[in-house]
């Protein structure tokens, strides 16, 4: 995380030295863009806070551990699509689940949908790219996630 602050600080510094007026203009643009998109972010945060309450970690472990591969993948991609969690929470959770015997392909479906399919980021994505593109991109992402899950299953010898 710190390298982001350092990089931003350096960028601003260099920009200031090069042209302070232009830097100020850039910061104004940044502020304006930030304020414009703020309601969408607020919407996302509200959704996230409610969904995470309704679906805590133990529910995720419970459903992903189901013995049937098909329902496991189905639940995994469903949960992955409707939740949003940072990698530093998701991967340790998956590590624990893996030790508990949850299949690689189920975890792959979960992590890939978690990363690519964003029902909770819908308000933000829609604000920038419109409803149609948002829906199309998310459906495509879901299919990619399913293909990735199947391939993972094949390579780890969990299916076929």
């Amino acid at each position: 995380m710190y390298y982001l602050y350092i990089a931003t600080g350096l960028a601003v510094l260099i920009s200031l030295i090069a042209d302070s007026e232009r830097t100020l203009k850039g910061c104004k643009i940044a502020l304006k863009k930030f304020v414009t998109i703020l309601p969408a972010f607020l919407g996302m945060l509200m959704l996230v806070s409610i969904i995470l309450f309704l679906i805590p970690d133990r529910v995720i472990s419970q459903y992903l551990g189901s013995s049937n591969i098909f329902t496991g993948v189905l639940f995994a991609s469903f949960l992955g699509s409707i939740t949003l969690m940072p990698g530093f929470i998701a991967f340790p959770l998956c590590g624990i689940l893996l030790k508990k015997g949850v299949l690689y392909l189920v975890l792959s479906a979960f992590t890939t949908t978690l990363m690519m399919v964003g029902i909770l980021t819908y308000p933000i994505e829609k604000a920038y790219f419109g409803t149609k593109v948002t829906i199309l991109r998310n459906i495509i992402s879901l299919f990619i996630a399913l293909i990735v899950a199947v391939m993972t299953g094949i390579f780890f010898g969990e299916i076929f």
Partner: peptide
């Protein structure tokens, strides 16, 4: 809500400043 807002506030200001600089 607060913990996620905090997470985003750590990243977003930098991201938008960089985008602003990118624009100019």
């Amino acid at each position: 809500f607060f913990s996620f807002s905090l997470d985003m506030l750590k990243v977003l200001p930098c991201a938008f400043i960089l985008i602003g600089l990118f624009e100019v």
